[in-house]
Write a protein that binds this DNA or RNA. Structure first.
Lengths: 147, 147
DNA sequence: CAGTATTGTTCGTAGTGCGAACCATACTAG
DNA sequence: CTAGTATGGTTCGCACTACGAACAATACTG
């Protein structure tokens, strides 16, 4: 009986918790998690489909469907690439940008207050270790830094 | 421009990473993440549907469907409760138990090696902080401790 | 210019998750 | 005891997710 969970169990449970919070914020904005992720990823700059595939870790057919639905909601737009006649880039519309921004802000708030039960220095330690793991594994920027 | 990400961004990316690893292990065992989670949750003891609803944070209709599919694969069994004529408990079959055990072991290995890029003391620190967050928020045991 | 590689889409399939409606059993009050 | 209510689960319809195979169109290469 470990008085403390192993790293693995802690990671899985922490992930479960973050997912819950993330999904809840999504809901409040009429988004699903994959849709929110798409908005976050194209916030910084328009991205090609072929570029989004490795970033979001989806098959291309899955991505087509996701972009279809998000485009139908008017948050994103497909633009033909001038350099490559086959390629398509995905960019935010004005309303998509507003939504992405408020979503990002609120998700950030919720997650910050989630860890705020700990003293600030512990938070900082935690954040830097998380960053270390993440950068060690080349995790794509699925959530933007502060605006 | 933060030279380090905020806690929120770190959490989201870490979650993305863990999800990727978890999903990959699931795939190798012919499982989906919700199915694996169900197996993990009923590993320790049979559980009632009504008990699984808050644990897995699903609506009861979603849970019905999930249990249907997992039962159809032969990994889980519905048993009528003797005390309450309305209630049903979900328990592992023999093959379900074997599957749950090998899945758990492999997921644990993969997650451990994911953090093994850091020195052991950092891992320990990280694990204890993760535990702290998790227990502060009453996250259900969606992943069992060592067998 | 022919052959090949890349970029996206379409289609079919299985699974996920929700809410509303519903049934059966349990509980509770008169 | 019996009506009314609460609880435990299922069913149904819906939208969404994700995959792989097949395909079309454009780009590249020999």
């Amino acid at each position: 009986m470990p008085e403390e969970l192993g790293v693995a169990a802690g990671l899985v449970r922490l992930t479960f918790l973050v997912q819950s919070v993330y999904a809840e914020v999504c809901r409040e904005h009429g988004l699903t998690p994959p849709q929110a992720q798409l908005l976050c990823v194209v916030t910084d700059a328009p991205r090609r489909m072929s570029d989004l595939v490795p970033t979001m870790r989806l098959e291309k057919s899955s991505l087509t469907g996701l972009v279809d639905r998000v485009e139908r909601k008017g948050w994103v737009r497909r633009v033909a690439s001038p350099e490559d006649g086959r390629a398509v880039t995905v960019e935010l519309t004005a309303s998509g940008r507003r939504l992405a921004e408020t979503f990002r802000a609120q998700a950030t708030d919720r997650l910050n207050e989630m860890v705020a039960c700990m003293p600030p220095d512990v938070c900082t330690t935690f954040a830097s270790i998380a960053d270390r793991i993440v950068s060690e594994h080349a995790v794509p920027a699925v959530f933007p830094d502060a605006s």
